[in-house]
Design a protein around this nucleic acid. Sequence first.
DNA 1: TAGCAGGAAAATC
DNA 2: GATTTTCCTGCT
Length: 304
Amino acid sequence: MEFTVALPSAFSLEYTLESGQLFRWEKRGEWWHGVVKGAALKVRQEADVLRCSTSSDLADSAFIANYFRLDEGLDHVLATISKDSTIARAVQRYYGLRLVRQGTWECLASFVLATNANIPRIKKMVSAVCRKFGGSFEFEGDTYWTFPNPEALAGASVPDLVECGLGYRAPFLKRVSESVSAGKVDFATLPTLGYEEARKVLLTELFGQKVLLGVGPKVADCVLLYSCGKDEAFPIDVWIARVLAKSYPRLLDPALKRRLVRDGKLKLSPRDYDRISKSARKRFGKYAGYAQQYLFMAAREAGA
DNA sequence: TAGCAGGAAAATC
DNA sequence: GATTTTCCTGCT
């Protein structure tokens, strides 16, 4: 099925797909190839439309508009978060970058793999897992693999997951898959809950044991921001920690600032994480998550 | 609660 | 080619 979707002026497919919120989009020539809703989707940004080609009627124009959040006014968001010159520069540089609505399961599983890895590596791991445990199909001469469902990964052996290059992350992914396939987390209700409540669900402990082993504050924030529409979520990774230390020292305690700046210790205790995340929300407002995404891009480009 | 291990690939020197 | 870093969390 081929069709076009009208685009708002503030939209950059390139920045959106390369902003580290998604790991399965690949650019081949003029087209971006991806898999959404178990369907192959090829997209290309033209003047004021998004040209689409998809293997399934499920990925129709309404789905695309919802996925890329095209009905939302980005300029209002960017005006709201542009509180200072640092963020304003990042916003100008990556203008058009949008947060998307990706599937919660895929988002959660992907970010469980993201610990101590860089983006190219995360993409490799996710791709290997899909090839090994997802379903394959052909579309316009290319082979695509669906993202495996929780049951498929729960049934995987740890050695098979290790073969995908996951290393120590293999048992975490298996445990998370088991919990999800056992119905211990209700993804459907997350978007209806407030940020704090939804976060508690992802970090729930039962009998002193976490339901989602391998999911800490950072991964939880990524899932809430990228897949549950919680735009105030402010995930703090090493890049964001560096930006905060360099350009937003006032958001940090003096002691924490010294630790971050002095010996580049970018590890935050859960307490520190929550405090900083909260002050970031206070500064950037209800769209703090967008601020995080633009700052992340700018920080990575600067290499510091 | 602070410190550390974890596994392998990418980035950097 | 060796070393450091990498969108972190769990355990002690």
